[in-house]
Structure formats: structure tokens, C-alpha cells
């Protein structure tokens, strides 16, 4: 299997688009799962997904088979998510009023027939707070809780020291916990 994959990669490195299409097919589920875990947004995830594979197409010639290809792709995926979020954050800062409106619009409608149960209330609050975290904290948080990565693995993936990763993680948790309490939601 690995041999076949390596052959596909080599063919893609020579510019064979059919081989590249096969590579996408092989990894699309796993890549999308990572992206959607981080972005938590279907539409954004699809944009990032395209960006990842177009970037991969540009960079695949540089892959030297020294590391596992999925690790290479995974790192590219996480970085692309991070950059996409940073861009979005900048955009929202420029158009802060629009951003506020956006959050109100996407919040759960109040006239639903049955009141949301406590779990879904907490879940939707967490998702809302999660999307407001700074990009670094959001990425680390997602890798930890949605991708089940250990601190040392996140550190290796992002090329940032373990101490920094822990700091982002604790800050993210603390921010979310405080915000939940302020909203009268206690776990």
C-alpha cells in the first residue's frame, strides 16, 4: 500500500494530475476531518480543503520521502487552517459591526418549538466561544480536544515549544470557562 502511495506521489511530483487526483481521494476523509475539527464550519472547511490540496500540488515536488506523507500533509493542513483563521480574524476586526451581526444571525433561533436541552446549550455556547478564541489558542484547543493529540505531538506539529502549547491550551480553557460562567452556564 505504502509502495503504491509512494508511486502516486512520485507521479504527482512529475506533474501527473491523475495521480494527484488519486492522492486527494486517498486522503480527503482524513484531511477534511482535521479541517472541520478545527474550523467547525462546513463552508469554511470546504474552502480550506481546496487551499490545502492546491498548496500540496505546489509543494509536492519538495517532498523527499524522509517523513511520513500524511504527517507532512497533516502539518500543511493544520497550518492552512491556522492561516485561514488568522485571515478571517483580521477581516472580522476590520468589520467588527458586521461580525457582531454575524454572530447574532448564526446564533440558535429563539423561536424554536422546544427549548434546547442543557447539553446542546453548553455545546452551542462552547462552539460560539471557540470561534472567538485567538487563532493560536483555537488551533491548539482543536488539536487537543478534537484531534486527541498530546501536548508534545501538538508541539512537534506546530513547531512550537511544549510550554507555549500548554500556555495556549490553559488560556483557551480558562477563557471559555470564564465566558460560560458569565453566561450563567456552569458545567
Amino acid at each position: 500500500m505504502k509502495e503504491q502511495l509512494n508511486q502516486l506521489i512520485e507521479r504527482a511530483q512529475k506533474g501527473e494530475t491523475r495521480a494527484f487526483n488519486e492522492i486527494i481521494k486517498h486522503y480527503e476523509d482524513r484531511v477534511m476531518s482535521v479541517i472541520i475539527g478545527i474550523t467547525r464550519d462546513r463552508v469554511e472547511a470546504q474552502d480550506v480543503f481546496q487551499e490545502v490540496f492546491i498548496k500540496l500540488f505546489d509543494k509536492i515536488g519538495h517532498f523527499r520521502f524522509e517523513s511520513d506523507f500524511f504527517t507532512y500533509l497533516y502539518r500543511m493542513t493544520v497550518n492552512t487552517c491556522f492561516n485561514a483563521h488568522r485571515r478571517k480574524k483580521r477581516h472580522h476586526n476590520v468589520f467588527q459591526d458586521t461580525s457582531e451581526e454575524f454572530w447574532n444571525v448564526t446564533a440558535a433561533p429563539e423561536d424554536e418549538e422546544a427549548p434546547p436541552d442543557r447539553d446542546s446549550e453548553i455545546a452551542s455556547a462552547i462552539l460560539r466561544l471557540y470561534t472567538q478564541l485567538p487563532p493560536q489558542q483555537q488551533t491548539v484547543f482543536a488539536l487537543k480536544y478534537y484531534e486527541n493529540k498530546k501536548v508534545n505531538e501538538i508541539s512537534e506539529l506546530l513547531g512550537v515549544g511544549e510550554g507555549t502549547i500548554k500556555r495556549y491550551l490553559f488560556r483557551a480553557r480558562e477563557t471559555m470557562q470564564k465566558a460560560l460562567i458569565q453566561e450563567g452556564i456552569t458545567p
Binding site: K25, I126, R173
Partner: peptide, 22 residues
């Protein structure tokens, strides 16, 4: 709670469209 949040799902057909677009 953090670990148990469900991920939004992507339909299989979406992948075909995305792949074609890429």
C-alpha cells in the same frame, strides 16, 4: 464536553465536487 463536541458532517458527494474544483 470539549472532547465530546460532534463535528459537522460532510456528505460524500461534496468530496466529488471539491475534487473536481481543485
Amino acid at each position: 464536553i470539549f472532547s465530546g463536541l460532534e463535528k459537522p458532517e460532510i456528505e460524500l458527494e461534496t468530496f466529488d465536487g471539491l475534487r473536481q474544483e481543485i
